[in-house]
Design a protein around this nucleic acid. Structure first.
Lengths: 353, 353
DNA sequence: CTGTTAGCGCCTTCAA
DNA sequence: TTGAAGGCGCTAACAG
C-alpha cells in the first residue's frame, strides 16, 4: 500500500446542480423536498440526471440553518458499559430511524462534569430535543434544556424539580416482584445491594419498595447495603459486611447442611457482577450453593452464571422515549407524562431448588 | 405534575448580542474565536456581559456552514452489543474530547443495509471524517468516503481494495499466542471456532494464524469450526459436531479419568459466550472439567466464568484511530498506515491446572 | 482597534 | 410551471 490518499474534490452544491441541469436553484430545492406535483416531467428528469452525474447530496447543516430544524436529537448516556444502556440505545435507534431523526450519542462515562459539557455541546449543535439518562444531572443543569429551551425526556430516572416526560421500569413493582419471589422460595435473610441512591430516583424507588415488601412479611429480615462501585475501599468494607452475614447463615453446601436461607438482591447488573466476582473469589466455583443471587437487569452472563433476574423492557423504554420526544418536538403541550413499563422475572438455578 | 411544559423562546443570535453590546457582529465573532489580543478590554467586557445576559450560545451549524468544517466525525459501528465495540468507543471519545471533535455514533446492528444508509447520512451531515468498524462494507460502499471524499480510518478490519489507515489488534500474533498457550498446556485437540470470515479480515487472519501455529506442532490436531451466530440452525449443527468431538475426547471429570486434552479457541467474545452457554446447558455447571475454553476478547464475564482470554488494547485502538483520522483531516498525505497493537494473554482456570 | 460587506448552501416568499 | 431575490447565523476579507 503506497498509493497516497487522494485529496477532497469539493462536493457539489445546489448551485452546481442547477447549472448542470440548466435551471434555477429553486427547482432543485423543490425536487429535494418532494414537491413533484407541480413540475414538468421533463425538468424533473433533467434534475435527476444532473444530481446523479454530480453525485450530489444536499447539505443537512445548511438545510437545518434555514429551516430551523436539523432532525438531530441528543442522547445523553451515563454509562455505556452497562448493558442496560446499550439495549435502551437499540430501541432509541429503531425509533429514530422510523421517525427520521438522527441521534447524537453522548457518553458521559459516569462523570458529572462530562454530562454538563455534553449538554452544553448539544445545545450548541441546536439539537431539537434530548433524551437524558444521566448520573448527576440536577435541575439547574437541565434548565437550559428541559426548561426554557429544548424539549427533554428522561430515561430510567427522574430529576428533582424538573418537569419533563420520563420513561423507565416500574421500579416499585419490579422490586416487589423480586422480593416476593425470594420470600416465596423460603429465603428469610435478604440483602438488598445498591449503589449510592441519593441522586438516582430509580435506585431510591427500588430500595424503598424492597423495604416495604419485606415489612409486609414480618418473619423475614431485610437489610440494605450501599456499595459505591467507584470507591474500592468502600466496596471492600461493604463486601466484608456481607461475608460476615453469609458466614453466620451457614450453608456450606454439605449434604447434611440445611439449604442456605440467605439471598442477595442486586439493584442492577453492575452491582450483581461485582457481587458474583467477589463471591466466586471468596467461596470458589461453588459459591452459588452458599448464597442466592437475584438482580434487576438481565445481562448476557446471567444465563451462564445461572442467576435469577428481572429483565427490563429496555428496547421499549428506548423506543417510547423517542416517541415522547418526537411528540414534544412536534409541539405537543400536555403536562409531563410518566411511562412505567413492567419488568419480567426470569427464574434460574440460583434461587430455585 | 400538572404544569404544562413551556414553549421555546427562540435562542439569541450573534446579531442580538451585537445589538445588546452596542457593537458589530464582527467583534462578537472575534470574541468567540478568541481573538482577544486586539480588542479593547472595555469592548470585551461589554460583549461578555451581553453574552451572559442573553445566555448566548453560538450556533455550530452556522459556523460549520461558513468555515467549511463542523468538527463532526462519523463513527460507524457494526455491533454495540459486543463489549469490544463499547471499549473501543471509550478510547474514541477520549481522543475526540482531547482533539475538539464530536463523534456521531452510528450503530448498524449487524445489518449491511444500515451501514450503507448511515454512511450516506454521515456524508449528508458533512462529517469531516469517518471511523469504520463495520460488517459488510465493501470498497464500493466506502468509495464516496475513503476514496474521493471524506477521510476514513478502519478499525479491527480492513476492506479489500480500499486504501485507508487501519488500526486494530495484531491478529496474527494474538492467535499464535493463544494457540501456543494451549499447546504448552498439553492440549493436542484444538478447535478454533469463528464466525463466517470471508468478509472480515481480522477473522481471516486469526484463523490462518491458528492453522499455521498448529502446523508448526505436528503432533497436535487442529480444526476450524465456522459458527454463523445469525443462523440458529447452522449454530445447532456446528455445536453438534463439537459435542461429538468432546465426547470422543472423554474427560468426564472423574478422578481416575485423565484430564481432557480438548480445547476450544473462540475467535471473539460473542462466539465464546455462545459456546459457554451451550456447554453449560449440555454438561451442567461442571462443563469446564470436560473442555477448556480460550477466547480472544476479554468480556466482563470472563473472570466470573474463569475462562482464559486474550485481551485487546481496545481503548488504545479507539484512541489511535481518532488520532489517525485527525491527522488526515488536517491534511496529512502519507500513504495508508497500519497500526497493529498487541493483545495480552490472561490465563485463568479454564486452561491451567 | 472596529465595523461594513459578502457570501457559506439552502429554503421561501413573491413575481413572472 | 418556473425563477429571482432575500435571509438563516456566522465568518472573513476589506476598509476605516
Amino acid at each position: 500500500m503506497t498509493t497516497p490518499l487522494s485529496t477532497t474534490p469539493r462536493r457539489a452544491t445546489i448551485t452546481d446542480v442547477a447549472r448542470e441541469a440548466g435551471t434555477g436553484k429553486t427547482s432543485i430545492s423543490r425536487y429535494l423536498n418532494g414537491e413533484m406535483s407541480v413540475m414538468s416531467p421533463e425538468l424533473r428528469a433533467r434534475i435527476e440526471a444532473a444530481i446523479a452525474r454530480l453525485d450530489y447530496q444536499p447539505n443537512q447543516m445548511a438545510r437545518g440553518l434555514k429551516r430551523g430544524r436539523n432532525r438531530l436529537i441528543g442522547m445523553l448516556l451515563a454509562d455505556l458499559t452497562n448493558p442496560y444502556t446499550v439495549e435502551v440505545l437499540q430501541g432509541v435507534e429503531a425509533a429514530c430511524h422510523a421517525l427520521g431523526l438522527m441521534p447524537l450519542i453522548c457518553h458521559a462515562a459516569n462523570e458529572v462534569e462530562m454530562e454538563r459539557r455534553y449538554l452544553q455541546l448539544l445545545t450548541t449543535y441546536r439539537v431539537e430535543g434530548v433524551i437524558v439518562n444521566a448520573l448527576g444531572v440536577r435541575e439547574e443543569t437541565l434548565r437550559p434544556v428541559g426548561g426554557g429551551g429544548i424539549p427533554a425526556v428522561l430515561v430510567d430516572r427522574s430529576v428533582e424539580g424538573l418537569v419533563a416526560d420520563m420513561v423507565g421500569l416500574d421500579n416499585r413493582a419490579a422490586a416487589e416482584l423480586g422480593t416476593r419471589h425470594l420470600l416465596a422460595q423460603g429465603f428469610d435473610d435478604i440483602w438488598f445491594v445498591v449503589q449510592p441512591f441519593e441522586q438516582v430516583s430509580s435506585r431510591q424507588l427500588r430500595e424503598l419498595a424492597f423495604r416495604d415488601a419485606m415489612r409486609a412479611q414480618n418473619a423475614a429480615r431485610g437489610h440494605t447495603l450501599v456499595l459505591n462501585l467507584a470507591d474500592a475501599d468502600e466496596v471492600e468494607r461493604g463486601l466484608a459486611e456481607l461475608d460476615r452475614a453469609i458466614d453466620a447463615a451457614g450453608g456450606d453446601g454439605g449434604a447434611d447442611d440445611p439449604a442456605p436461607r440467605i439471598a442477595l438482591f442486586a439493584a442492577n447488573a453492575p452491582v450483581a457482577l461485582r457481587l458474583a466476582l467477589h463471591l466466586k473469589a471468596r467461596c470458589g466455583a461453588g459459591w452459588q450453593a452458599r448464597v442466592a443471587l437475584l438482580s434487576i437487569d438481565d445481562p448476557e452472563w446471567a444465563e451462564l452464571a445461572g442467576i435469577t433476574t428481572i429483565r427490563q423492557p429496555t428496547y421499549d423504554i428506548g423506543y417510547r422515549a423517542v416517541e415522547f420526544l418526537h411528540e414534544r418536538i412536534e409541539g405537543v403541550q400536555t403536562s409531563a407524562r410518566d411511562c412505567l413499563l413492567a419488568g419480567e422475572l426470569i427464574v434460574r438455578a440460583s434461587t430455585s431448588r
